[in-house]
Write a protein that binds this DNA or RNA. Structure first.
Lengths: 342, 342
DNA sequence: TTGACGAATGTAACCGCTTTCATTACTCAC
DNA sequence: GTGAGTAATGAAAGCGGTTACATTCGTCAA
C-alpha cells in the first residue's frame, strides 16, 4: 500500500543511481564486499534497503554462468521417507543464498536422466541425487558436472563426488539378526515397490538367515506395487496362507509393518508372542502404536541436511571433509512388537 | 562416452549454424512455430535432436522477462497432506514446459511474505499459495502480480485471482453432525498446530454442537505443537482426565486420530462403543486400521492438479472458467470407529 | 619530488536468448 | 506489368546482471 515503488521492479541500475556509483560497484558490493570501501558499501546497503531491491536471478545466472539453485532429485513425492529428507534439505538451505530446485523421478532411471539433463542446464550450484542406480548416461553427466554432486540415502564404493547415507544391506542384516536373537525361527519378508534400495534390504535379510543356518522357505513375499498400510495387511495375509509357520515379519518399511500389525489384530494373532513385527525407517508413529513397533531407525533428516552442508562446504572450498563417503549408520529400535520371551 | 558434444553445452547459435539460419529463426521455431516455414522447422527440429540442444532457462527468462517456473508456497514439508497436494502439482506440471519452484513457509506468514517476494522476482508463469491468511504486504504483492495466482486448500469470498479447495468449517460441522447422529452426546475436539485452517475446523465443531443443543464443556483440547501420532495419544489422555464424560473425539487430522485410537486400546476403551473417533483428511491408513477409522475425505491431489490446471488455462488464455472459486468439497467416510449401535 | 604500486571505482563487453523492425521474395488483383 | 500485401527470414538491440580491464588517486620508498 505505502510503496508504489515495489511495482516497477527495482534494478541494480536504480540502486547505483541512488547512491551515485556505477552498477559494477553495486554488483561487487553484493558479490565481493571486500572489494568495496566500507563507506560506499554501507550506502549501497542502505539504498538496497530503502528501495527494496532484489536481484534478478535470471540475469545473475546468465551473467555469471552459475545459478544459485541446488538441484535435488528424489524418487517420490509422497513417500514419507523423502519428506523427512526434504525437511533437512530445506532447513539447511534456509538462510543461504541458494534455493532448492526439486525434481521427482518416480523411481524411473530414465526420468531421472531427463531431470538431470534439465537441471544441469541451469548450471546449478550443486546437485543432490538419490542412490547409486543411475543410467550410464546419467553417470556420465554427473561424473563431469562442474559442480558438487552428492548422492544420498546410500553408501557405496564409487561416489561421483560425495555421498551420505547408510547401508541398506547391513541394516536389513542387523534387523534380521535381531528377530532371530529374539527367538523367532521362521521370519518372513514383506516388500513393496522393490526398488534397488529395497532389493538390497532383501539381500541382507537372505544373507543373514543363511548365515544363521535358517531356511527362508516360502516366506519372502514381495510386490512391485507401491507401498501402503493396506498393502501391508494384504501381504501378511498372503504370506500366512503360503507359509503358516511364519513367526515374524521384517517389513521393508513402516507402512507395511503397521498394516501387518493391523492384520494380525484382525486375525487375533498376538504380537509379539505369535508374530514378531519389524519395520524400517522408524517413522514417528512406530513408537506410538499399540503394541509399539520395532523398527530400524534411519537418519533421514540428517541425510538431507548433510547433503546440503557438503555442497555448501564444497562451494566455500573448505578442505574436502576427510572422507567423501559419510556413513550415517542406522539403529535397530527394539520395541514391544519383537519382545518375545526368548 | 559416445558424445563429447554434450560437454561444451550446445547453444542456439550452434543449432542455427548447423541448419544455416539465424538464431532468430531457431528461436521462433521454438516459441512460435507457426511463424516458421514447415521445411525449416523440420530441419531445426532435426538439428536440435542430433545436437542435443537444450535451451538455457536463465537466458530465456532474461530475454522474455518471463520464466517457465510455477512458484508454489506450502506451509510444511513433512505434513502428509501437502505431500499429496505436491503429488498432484508435479503430476499436472509434468510434460508441460513449466517446472515447479517450491517454497515452505513453515506456517509463518512473514516467511511466506519473503518467499512471495523472492519468487515474484523470478517473474514466474504462475503462483500457487496456500490458504487465505496472508499478510497485508503479501496480499498486495499477489493482488498486483502479473501472472495467474491460485489459492489452494480453502474456499473464500475474495480470491486474488482463482481459488480451489473446500470449506474447513463446513467439513468440521458435517463431521461433528455425524458423531452426534451416531449417538455420541459428549464429543470432544483434539487439535494440534492450530493454524488458521485448523481454527476454522474448531469453529465448525463448536457451531455444530451449539446448533444441536449440546454443550462443549471442557472437551476442546488443543495445542500449538505440531501434530503427531504420539501427540494424539497424549491429547486424548489429557482430555479424558479433564472431561471423563467424553464419548467421542473429532481430531483435526488423521495422525491425532490414530494416536487417539492407540491410546484408547491402551486404556481398554472400546472403539467405537465407549469412544468414537473421527479423523480428518482420510489418509490411506485410516481404512486399513483396526478398527477402521472414520475420517473426512479431502481431495488433496485434486487440489494440486486443479491449481496447476487453472494456471495452465489462464496462460493459454482459455476463457476463464465460469467460477473463479472452485469448491472440491469433502466427504465424511464413516467407518467402524464411529459405528455405534445408535 | 617523483615514480611505483595497490586500493577503489568506472567502462564496456558479454552471458544466450527474445523480439522489434527491416528486408526480401512472392503472390495476386488490376 | 506494376504496386500492394503477405509470409519468411535476418539484423540488431536489448533483458539485468558480472567481470576483465582501464583509470584514478593516494601512499610511500628512494
Amino acid at each position: 500500500m505505502a510503496n508504489d515503488n515495489e511495482n516497477k521492479s527495482i534494478k541494480m541500475r536504480d540502486v547505483a543511481d541512488h547512491v551515485g556509483v556505477s552498477v559494477a560497484t553495486v554488483s561487487r558490493a553484493l558479490r565481493n564486499p571486500e572489494q568495496v570501501s566500507p563507506a560506499v558499501r554501507a550506502r549501497i546497503a542502505a539504498a538496497i534497503d530503502t528501495l527494496g531491491y532484489l536481484p534478478d536471478p535470471a540475469a545473475r545466472a546468465l551473467a555469471s554462468t552459475r545459478s544459485d539453485l541446488i538441484a535435488v532429485i528424489l524418487p517420490s513425492v509422497s513417500n514419507n521417507v523423502f519428506a523427512d529428507v526434504m525437511d533437512g534439505i530445506y532447513a539447511a538451505a534456509e538462510g543461504t543464498r541458494y534455493s532448492v530446485q526439486l525434481g521427482y523421478s518416480r523411481y524411473s532411471p530414465l526420468s531421472e536422466e531427463n531431470l538431470t539433463k534439465l537441471f544441469l542446464r541451469q548450471r546449478p550450484a550443486g546437485i543432490v541425487v538419490t542412490g547409486i542406480d543411475q543410467t550410464d548416461a546419467t553417470k556420465t553427466l554427473l561424473g563431469q558436472a562442474n559442480c558438487p554432486v552428492v548422492q544420498i540415502m546410500e553408501t557405496g564404493p564409487e561416489p561421483y563426488d560425495r555421498m551420505i547415507g547408510f547401508s541398506h544391506y547391513d541394516a536389513a542384516r542387523v534387523a534380521t539378526a535381531h528377530l532371530i536373537a529374539q527367538g523367532y525361527r521362521a521370519p518372513g519378508f514383506l516388500g513393496a515397490r522393490m526398488d534397488p534400495r529395497t532389493q538390497r534390504r532383501l539381500h541382507g535379510f537372505r544373507d543373514e538367515l543363511r548365515a544363521q543356518g535358517l531356511e527362508e522357505g516360502r516366506r519372502v513375499h514381495t510386490t512391485t506395487r507401491p507401498s501402503s498400510v493396506t498393502l501391508g495387511s494384504y501381504l501378511l495375509g498372503e504370506l500366512l496362507s503360503v507359509a503358516p509357520e511364519t513367526d515374524a515379519v521384517f517389513c521393508i518399511n513402516d507402512d507395511l509393518a503397521l498394516g501387518a500389525m493391523f492384520e494380525a489384530q484382525r486375525r487375533n494373532l498376538r504380537v509379539p508372542e505369535s508374530l514378531g513385527i519389524c519395520g524400517f525407517n522408524d517413522m514417528e508413529m512406530m513408537g506410538a502404536a499399540e503394541p509399539a513397533l520395532t523398527s530400524v531407525r534411519t537418519f533421514r533428516r540428517e541425510m538431507g541436511e548433510g547433503a546440503i552442508q557438503m555442497i555448501l562446504d564444497a562451494l566455500a572450498e573448505k578442505a574436502p571433509a576427510s572422507e567423501p563417503v559419510l556413513d550415517l549408520g542406522f539403529e535397530v529400535v527394539a520395541r514391544t512388537s519383537t519382545q518375545r520371551g526368548g
